[in-house]
């Protein structure tokens, strides 16, 4: 395996891992599973080794869906995908979109919803089930003009997470609405008081 010097990421890794907040292992597990699906065991091994070298070891095989893990670890995984696997912004989005198909917990929740409206209006509840930090709310749901505005407050990790979240959200919505799209319109990393996602459909 090619060795990478990742010491330059140590400070950022420590910062992310110190931010309070936990998440259910299911999300993290699905992200690592998606990395494996995309780049095979070699890509996964690269990420797992880097996590271990940085002092935050995590192995796909050992993650328990219902256990709690630091929320910062998802941001760290996405960051490592960018730095070590050369993921572009689009790749990060697509990887998270794929991850949402592989999530044990996601499937468990999504199999019961009856409509898109029901899903989007329940995002707060769904978020709280997965993550202990940040507040996701459906700020507006406009059925007539076919758009919704989601706001994520008190959640600042790393800009790469915004792409990942957008991909994951879209994946969840696609379970109940085929032609749905998503775009981050405001960002807490760019001076806004929260992240804002505009969801549109046909």
């Amino acid at each position: 395996m090619i060795m990478f010097d990742i010491s330059y990421l140590q400070e950022e890794a420590d910062r992310l891992m110190k931010i309070p907040g936990v998440q259910k292992g299911a999300v993290l597990k699905s992200h690592l599973a998606a990395i494996k699906e995309r780049g095979g065991t070699e890509s996964l091994a690269k990420i797992e080794k880097a996590l271990s070298d940085l002092g935050y070891p995590l192995k796909l095989q050992e993650i328990k869906s219902m256990r709690e893990y630091p929320e910062g670890q998802t941001a760290l995984v996405s960051l490592l995908c960018q730095k070590l696997l050369g993921y572009t912004d689009e790749d990060i989005f697509n990887q998270a979109f794929a991850a949402s198909k592989l999530s044990f917990f996601g499937q468990l929740v999504m199999r019961t919803f009856l409509s898109f409206e029901q899903v989007i209006k329940n995002v707060s509840r769904y978020w709280r089930k997965h993550v202990s930090v940040g507040e996701l709310e459906c700020y507006e749901f406009n059925k007539k003009e076919k758009f919704a505005i989601l706001r994520l407050k008190k959640y600042v990790f790393h800009p790469v997470v915004c792409l990942s979240l957008a991909g994951y959200f879209l994946g969840m919505f696609r379970y109940v609405q085929p032609n749905v799209k998503i775009k981050e319109t405001r960002c807490a990393h760019k001076g806004a008081p929260f992240h804002e996602f505009k969801v549109t459909w046909q």
């Binding site: 199999r111 019961t112 009856l114």
Partner: peptide
Amino acid sequence: CTLNPLGIIVN
């Protein structure tokens, strides 16, 4: 496989 109420495959 498992389907949601809309007949979409979830698993």
